[in-house]
Amino acid sequence: MDALDTLARKTVPAAMGEARIGLDDFITAYNESRCELLDIRVPEETAVWQFSFGLRIPANELPDRLDELPSDTLLVVACPMSDRSNMARSYLAAKGFEAKYLAGGLLGLADRLKGGAAKTLKLRT
């Protein structure tokens, strides 16, 4: 069974936890250095607003830039909502990476990190 077949067979409600991660779980995993954020938006989008952490590789450049991705940690793939990140996550999973898409998206994360809640994120440099 190839990687895409495996992806398709796992597309059932009980297995979606392997495909996505919620905002709070992401923040916890990030603080514990168990994952890395991967922003797959196009360069124009990352120019107008950006997170100060994580990796930035546009989704359409992923096929040529897989060597830039860490293979020893969970990749949390993110876009403004979750449509492009879901596709990119499927691609990375098919390529053998441990990857989940950020449910709630970068817009949700920006909302989650407002006011005092921004302190819950332990930024690493």
Binding site: V48, F53, A118, L123
Partner: peptide, 14 residues
């Protein structure tokens, strides 16, 4: 005019 921690997490380019 957000707090420093908020700006450290994410910001706009403008």
């Amino acid at each position: 005019i957000r707090f420093r921690e908020e700006h450290a997490a994410w910001s706009v380019g403008m």
